[in-house]
Computed example of a mutant assay.
Amino acid sequence: MTMTQEDVRPDGTASRRRVLAAGGAVVAGAGAGGLLATNAVAEAAPAGTADSTSTTGEVCYRLTSESIEGPYYIDADKLRTNVTEGKPGIRLALNIKVIDSETCRPLRNAAVDIWHCDALGVYSGYESTGSGGGSGGGPTGGPTDSPTDTPTGGPGGGGGGGGHQEPTDDTRYLRGTWRTDHQGRVRFQTVLPGWYQGRAVHIHTKVHVGGAWTEGGYEGGHTCHTGQFYFEEEAVLAAAELTPYSTSTVTRVTLTEDMLYDQSGATGGLLTLHYDKRRIGRGVRAFITVGVDPDATHDGDDGGFPGGGSPAPSPSATA
Rank of each mutant, 00 (worst) to 15 (best):
R108D: 13
R179I: 01
T190H: 10
L107P: 00
G141I: 05
T190E: 06
G176Y: 01
G121F: 00
R187I: 11
V98N: 05
Y196R: 05
T148G: 15
Q197M: 06
I203Y: 04
G154W: 03
I114F: 04
Y173S: 11
I96Q: 02
H116Y: 10
T144D: 13
G137H: 00
G176E: 01
T144N: 14
F188P: 02
W195N: 04
G159V: 07
D113C: 06
I114P: 00
G159C: 08
A110K: 02
I96T: 00
P106E: 09
N95I: 04
G159A: 12
P147H: 09
E127V: 11
G156Y: 05
I203E: 01
L107Q: 03
G142Y: 08
T140Y: 03
P106A: 09
T129G: 06
G121T: 00
T177A: 07
G125C: 07
N95W: 05
T148L: 15
I203L: 13
I96H: 00
A119W: 03
G133T: 12
T144G: 15
E102P: 00
G137F: 01
T180E: 07
S146Q: 15
G132H: 04
V112E: 02
L107W: 02
I114N: 01
I114D: 01
R108G: 04
W115R: 05
P155C: 15
R105Y: 08
G133Y: 12
E127K: 10
H202P: 00
H202Q: 10
L174T: 03
Y173I: 02
V186K: 05
E166K: 12
V112C: 04
C104I: 09
R185F: 06
W115Y: 14
Y126W: 14
S131D: 08
R199I: 03
R187G: 02
I99L: 12
H164D: 12
Q189D: 13
T171Q: 12
G136S: 13
G125Y: 07
D145N: 14
D113A: 14
G142Q: 11
T150Q: 13
E166W: 12
V122K: 02
T144K: 14
G159F: 05
T152R: 13
H182E: 15
G194T: 00
S124Y: 07
S124W: 02
S128F: 08
T168S: 13
P106D: 09
W115I: 04
I114V: 15
G163P: 10
R187S: 14
D100K: 08
T180P: 02
G137N: 11
G154M: 09
R108V: 09
W195T: 03
T140K: 10
V98Q: 04
F188M: 02
